[in-house]
Write a protein that binds this DNA or RNA. Sequence first.
DNA 1: GGGGCGGAAATTGCATGCAAGCACTCATGG
DNA 2: CCATGAGTGCTTGCATGCAATTTCCGCCCC
Lengths: 252, 252
Amino acid sequence: MTLSQIPTPLATLIARTQALDGGRRKGALHGGVVTQLRNLIVTGVLAPGAKLNEREICEQLAVSRTPVREAIKTLIQDGLLRALPNQSAVVAELDLDHVTALIDVVTTIEGLAGELAARNISEEAIAEIGLLHYRMRLHHARDELPGYFEANTAFHRKIVEIAANPVLLWVWDLLALRVDRARYSSNLWPTRWMMAIEEHQGILDALSARDSARAGEALRQHVRNGLSGLVAALSGEQPEPPQKRPDDDPVG
Amino acid sequence: MTLSQIPTPLATLIARTQALDGGRRKGALHGGVVTQLRNLIVTGVLAPGAKLNEREICEQLAVSRTPVREAIKTLIQDGLLRALPNQSAVVAELDLDHVTALIDVVTTIEGLAGELAARNISEEAIAEIGLLHYRMRLHHARDELPGYFEANTAFHRKIVEIAANPVLLWVWDLLALRVDRARYSSNLWPTRWMMAIEEHQGILDALSARDSARAGEALRQHVRNGLSGLVAALSGEQPEPPQKRPDDDPVG
DNA sequence: GGGGCGGAAATTGCATGCAAGCACTCATGG
DNA sequence: CCATGAGTGCTTGCATGCAATTTCCGCCCC
């Protein structure tokens, strides 16, 4: 079932983002296509298992096949797509097993980041983290989920940046793609908001105190809690059984 | 300084590997080019900072630019190359800082792998690990460094496989590229052989006993020792200080 | 002699053309 | 009615052509 057979939200979403001829600098197409497709996959607009037809993407993004092909290769490397030989790449499945597997790895990585960050952190960095924390609280108070998401990602990434370990940051960025994807495909978050904010406060405190062990442990707990809840949510709701497709229900 | 200006070991090495038209299956060129270039980079044949001229690679590998371009993009994703806009990709530097940064991350990842593996390990897997351990001892006894390298990598990767966490394996594979690269660029290993083998024995014992904590700790110690030694070696020899550039030394 | 500048060659980035392989259809036989 | 197989169209994989940008070189000016 290709995208052209459904009302193709792909088209509308891409159209809204103004294709990607904004900059028109020479080397911008490849990166632009990667970003576009990545967002579509992470946010779930392109459902797991969906086939990516190069030709269609070319038309929607108004570019030729070359950058699209390269972008697809990139996303395969990132693990967001699966490659089948001589066939369309498909959006990688979001197995429960896979998300479960993420828990241990991300927990470990973020724990390490917390430990390292607590050692290196400067007053300025503490202030930046605090700023992001309060941005999150603000978004929470206003019930602005997207803003909260963004600030949350920035908060965690900032900690990894403070850890001042480029390899760690690189790995974290790769993992964050998958975490975000899982996060977007679940939508029970309000229940964890309060708890997450308290945990963030604890992390901030530990970092401010430059307590390496406590920061690491706080982050591990926080990440494990979050991802475990996410897995629970996914295992409870994700089966998405009556995801009625418009061309079903032949009676109507 | 392009490759064509030096006796281009690239050519000879690639020629020896019989280009890559062996299989001639349709979808084999891209992967083949990636593998070729990756090996050249990891083994150090392509020195850090070297520019990769697409045209030259095309000629040497006897393929067109399309698969080469895609392969370069892939290697950029892997962090083995750095992309400059509208310029040739260059082989990523092998900063001491970067290798140092690897220590913490790889240590943590392998430690996690050890913990998980110790829980899941089957009798068959124990035997496989033991087999690899003794293959290493054999290669050590025979002073066969390449064989030892290979078995060593297989030993560590097998542990990660036993951990049965696909995300962990994915991350490990990515990190292994960098570790191998650093390892190839250093060449003091004989001094650590004996110690490494003892440590491997300890890891094997811990895994056999299904002692998760001990296995994790043994692996962490082992990896940290190895990588620290590697950093020490690199910082001692690698600075390649009198890498006299022909246009230096205006006195001469 | 040194530094700045103009132009040409070379290189990357993107678009397109062509062939091989897979999927889908439909007819055919059991 | 179901299984099977040939034919056709579509899709990917690779090769190649064209434009923009960088780089390199020689030249000119100071």
